[in-house]
Write a protein that binds this DNA or RNA. Structure first.
Length: 502
RNA sequence: GCUCCCAUCGUCUAGAGGCCUAGGACACCAGAUUUUCAUUCUGGCGACACGAGUUCGAAUCUCGUUGGGAGUACCA
């Protein structure tokens, strides 16, 4: 039997680093076993999926070098005779409806007419009573003929699976020590077909994995809980189930499932930042799996040759940006002069158009751009304490001003509808100064602070901010500069300036 | 709440009963090289969550506790 594996991302938002991770594992497993790596687009949520997002997935996989053997045709990848590989197209071909009907006929599924309101109320009740939260199966007993009549009259419905009411589900995942055992009564009568007639993930994935001849479903742990449903569906649809294997979830530094709030998750971001695909892939390859000899730097092809599914560690690894950065450096320095040049130009180009109008006022020669725009590209700036002391300020005072301004920026950024552009920033900072210096603005303040208020002049604060943000006493207009540097870096550099004044 | 999963240095991991006074990598600290910085090299810090068993012997097996995570949608 030839190995056939798949990744089945949902095209919502930016392509996700988790897709790359699971993709890498599947890809390596396929190649190691001389099998096929399939891409299927799971766009059955009509409200969230977009074609642009699907395209970004193809491009990202291509960028990483995880070229799929079968899938939507794109840029030399894809094709195959088990298509279409986009579920929305399969919906239109009536594929899922057919299998839902089969279950209905067999008495393994039923029409459910409960409304969202009903379900909501039910859930609230269960929550209040500390009961497990699941559908109460109210519609389960109804006759099929009667239900079909109601449906024909235009009443909204979904189709649910008729989960066994008793007994146990047992499945041994090859990566887990113990078999998964679950009482069927804990398992919900999952919706299979939504009221718009489109399938949910559960039905669509099981049907397509079968139709596409998938032999191994290697996916993230978050699916482990719905495994019984998927096995059940395979059985009742008369399919030979693929082997299901669940690997650990990528984590934030706090061990929670990786999320864009706490970690960059968009592959587009890594690409834009200048991360090399080889480096990112190599880094991902180190998570949950390792080279048998402890080697840490290797190519995709090498990984494919030593990859061993059974050596995967299912504890969810933390995505450690520091280590990624290290590998990126290793790969970058190994680049050929041509490729390195291309990377450098690309990095400059990424901000060039936005920066040139600001910087050009002080330029005499083309080369001046390089040093004058340095603070905008640099990861960090070098500060000199003496530059941070505008006329008339001492260390403590300057530090206070920086501290308070930094706090103000933080509040500003956290606020609703905060716009980080030059006019907004200027308005904000001027208002901030005004509030600080208005007579009686701080009635409860100590005399010390009161006297400090006199120092809040635009002139000294602006210079302070300029130096803190850029490390230089000369720069393009302050607010344009702050806007271009970006909120995160500005706030960070304001903090570093305070440390410098200690 | 309920169900399920997981558990070696701060992080990624090696380790499938004696080779473990637990190895490597990142980070961190110190030193060498470098005019500086970075690179590179050397050294240091640093973990088997806890408690019972099984065994002559346990990081490795079993059970419990604790901790962390996931799921609980007409999202995937």
């Amino acid at each position: 039997m030839t190995v056939r594996v798949r990744i089945a991302p949902s095209p919502t938002g930016d392509p996700h680093v988790g897709t790359a991770y699971i993709g890498l594992i599947n890809y390596a497993f396929a190649k190691k076993n001389g099998g096929k790596f399939v891409l299927r687009i799971e766009d059955t949520d009509q409200t969230r999926c977009t074609p642009e997002s699907a395209k970004a997935i193809y491009d990202s996989l291509k960028w990483l070098g995880l070229c799929y053997d079968e899938g939507p045709m794109h840029d030399g990848m894809g094709g195959g005779d088990r298509g279409p590989y986009i579920q929305s197209e399969r919906v239109k071909a009536g594929i899922y409806q057919k299998f839902a009907d089969k279950l209905l006929e067999q008495g393994d599924a039923y029409y459910c007419f409960c409304t969202a309101r009903d379900l909501d109320a039910m859930r609230k009740r269960q929550q209040a009573n500390n009961e497990p939260i699941m559908y109460n199966r109210r519609c389960r007993g109804g006759s099929l003929a009667e239900a079909r009549e109601r449906a024909a009259k235009g009443e909204a419905f979904v189709i649910r699976m008729k989960t066994p009411l008793e007994g146990e589900f047992v499945y041994k995942d090859r990566l887990r020590k113990q078999p998964t055992v679950k009482g069927w009564k804990e398992i919900d009568d999952q919706v299979l077909l939504k009221s718009d007639g489109w399938p949910t993930y559960h039905l669509a994935a099981v049907v397509d994995d079968h139709l596409m001849g998938i032999t191994h479903v290697i996916r993230a742990e978050e699916w482990l809980n719905s495994l019984p449903k998927h096995i059940w569906l395979n059985e009742h649809l008369g399919f030979t189930a693929p082997e299901y294997v669940h690997v650990g979830l990528l984590r934030n530094a706090d061990k929670s499932k990786i999320s864009k709030r706490k970690n960059p998750t968009s592959l587009l971001w890594y690409q834009k930042q200048g991360y090399l695909p080889e480096a990112l892939l190599n880094f991902l390859a180190l998570l949950g799996h390792s080279h048998p000899d402890g080697q840490e730097k290797f190519t995709l092809a090498e990984m494919c040759s030593f990859f061993d599914l059974d050596r995967i560690n299912v504890a969810g690894p933390v995505f450690d940006m520091a280590k990624l950065r290290h590998l990126q450096g290793q790969y970058f320095r190994d680049l050929s002069p041509e490729r390195m040049k291309a990377e450098v130009y690309r990095a400059i180009d990424s901000k060039f158009d936005a920066l040139l109008p600001l910087v050009k006022e002080r330029m005499v020669f083309g080369g001046d751009f390089v040093w004058q725009s340095e603070p905008f590209y640099a990861d960090s700036v070098t500060l000199h304490a003496e530059d941070l002391l505008p006329k008339g300020l001492d260390k403590t005072q300057a530090k206070h001003l920086l501290e308070e301004t930094q706090q103000a920026f933080k509040r500003y950024v956290a606020g609703d509808g905060a716009v980080w552009d030059a006019p907004s920033l200027e308005a904000f900072v001027r208002k901030f100064i005004e509030d600080r210096t208005a007579p009686g603005a701080l009635p409860d303040a100590t005399p010390e602070v009161q006297s400090e208020a006199a120092l809040w002049s635009p002139k000294s604060l602006f210079m302070l901010l300029r130096v803190a943000a850029t490390g230089k006493r000369e720069s393009p207009p302050l607010f344009d500069t702050l806007a271009q540097i970006g909120q995160a870096k500005v706030i960070e550099r304001l903090g570093l300036a305070q440390q410098k004044l200690r």
